[in-house]
Amino acid sequence: MSQKDQTVISRTGSAVSLKGVDKHFLQWQRDNHAKGMLRNLIKPEKKVVRALEDVSFEIEKGEFVAYAGPNGAGKSTTMKLLSGMLIPNAGDIRVFGLSPQKNRRALMHRLGVLFGNRTELWWDHPIIQSFEWKKVVWNIDDSTYRRNLDMVTELLDLGPLLKTFAREMSLGQRMRADLGMMLLHSPELLLLDEPTLGLDVVAKRQMIDFLKKINHEEGVTIMVTSHDMDDLEEMAERMLMISDGKIAYDGGFDGLRKITGDLTRVILSMENGDVPTLDDAHLISAKNGVYEFEVDLGQTTVRDLMRRLSDYDGISDVEIKKAPIEQVIARIYQEWK
């Protein structure tokens, strides 16, 4: 979106496109023994790390995509490739139809990039000074700047923080300020690498609500990585999972559950000390008369399950819920290992 015309973002067409992207790195290997150290001085041992291998996917404008994978899977590498910080070894990358490697400057007017462990704020200055710096460097016109400043100040509750030094803020406050600063030039695509890293429950809540809001109302395309799967499920409709540099899953969160079996949790509260048993169910926990089972709905139906439970005496309460996405994904990671 140009800075002058921010109000309507086109929601059709491709925002991000990767086709057959490979990215390799060389990693030096070091020995701990004298002989190895000497050998390394003369001929260092190097290992090829395949960060991305033949990765292809497409993100449409207006989508909110979660990008997940175990540590070292290639998430940050993808983010850096998309923002023109790295060049792929093979394949084609397009962001709004442009190559980030060739059109980095033009794209940076349309992209917002945030790495959760870094800040773009000036450490020894109040937030408003960083915002003003951004206005000059990004060449944001007065009206766009004013409108966006008002918007982020209100939605991210930045009013009391504008005059505070970045160095004096808590992590949650700093992340809010970073997010606000990122949005001052009205980016159409946000690339967020672990934006909820280290945030407490309240700060996380604020960030998730805000991202959902700008995605729904402003049509901003968002691609976000996180290790917190519950957060991702709440924010995004689509999940891209990467493992060992390859796209391992692309689809909805419910589809992900089906991969590990259609696992559902059944929680039974018992009245008189009875210990329930359920065929085809796996007991996960038992505490103070409350029993939690894992049931694979691929093996049995809900109807059948309910019928069997109704035959049971001494049940005071029944709760059926989806298996937590955290655990589903943990199981998937384990299987990949």
């Binding site: 910080m85 400057r105 033009a106 940076m108 992209l111 870094r118 773009e120």
Partner: peptide, 11 residues
């Protein structure tokens, strides 16, 4: 820290 510079729309 060059990455901070990559995200600025300036040469």
């Amino acid at each position: 820290q060059l990455e901070h510079m990559f995200i600025q729309p300036l040469p």
